[in-house]
Amino acid sequence: MLIDDHTIAASRRRIAGFRLHRPVTIDEACDLLARFSDGAMLHAGGIDVTNRMKRGFLQPHVIAVQQVAGLSGIRLGETEIEIGAATRHWDIEIDPGLRHALPTLCDYVAGLGNIRIRMQGTIGGNIMAAEPGYEMPAVLAVLDAELVFRDCATRTERRLTVDQWLEIRGANPGPLLLTSIRLPRRPIALAWNRQLRPALSLVAALRHDGTGQMRGRMAVTGGSSGPLIADIALTAAGREDPDLGLVARAWVDRLPLLQLPLGPDAGYCSEVIPILCRRLLQTLSKRLP
């Protein structure tokens, strides 16, 4: 979705009239989403919805969820952290509780895009926009997050891992409202590299698994199908399992990089992804005591 159709330039003036709905409860929002299904767009922070409307993707109904009670905010449990889907990036980066419980996530979010975007954009919008360069799915995947959805057709809750969500999202999973993101609360180290954004962005997490090994996940964002994710482990002796070079190479093969109008070519990516992965792992193993 990076290439604009220039036949008619993108503009806010292309946004035709629509019917605005401003639900205040999750149930109400769900009702509206079920009722209008294909004819409605959810509007959280509105960044992507608005830019898409400017390019001519229009629907007769817009459901603004910014006022829905319970859809934003951060709750810290004993073992779990819950972030409301409509929580703004900014509110994540400055939340004192989260900064205590999972400071690296705050730092990660603080480096996302720019301040205007973080003040307005939501975590749910970043995930659900399904844009190739957006980074939240990757970081949430490596932190073993679960996405909590309300299936508006069946009125049931669905919990999906990021990997599961990435698998089904292309297959029209029906009207789903993302209500929150749940993360395990535990010590974990996080490292990332954004030097080549928007073409490539890498993130990795590592923790002690209690058996003397360090386990974690690593993800690379850049391909149009969403982040590519792999499990990683380091033995106490520092041996990689599986071999990081192999993981990276497998990713490279799967990255449909030629879809990217921006940035370097596939050949380059295949050279640097393994290097950047290894550097991340080195940083992480140093960071984990």
């Binding site: 993108a10 509105g46 400017k54 720019n114 205007r116 003040m119 307005q120």
Partner: peptide
């Protein structure tokens, strides 16, 4: 830019700098 890229349209909404070309 009318796309959220440049910030020329920045205003403060409840004290937060936001992009008024991307805010209804």
């Amino acid at each position: 830019c009318d796309q959220g890229a440049c910030g020329a349209c920045t205003v403060l909404l409840d004290g937060r700098p936001v992009t008024s070309c991307l805010t209804f």
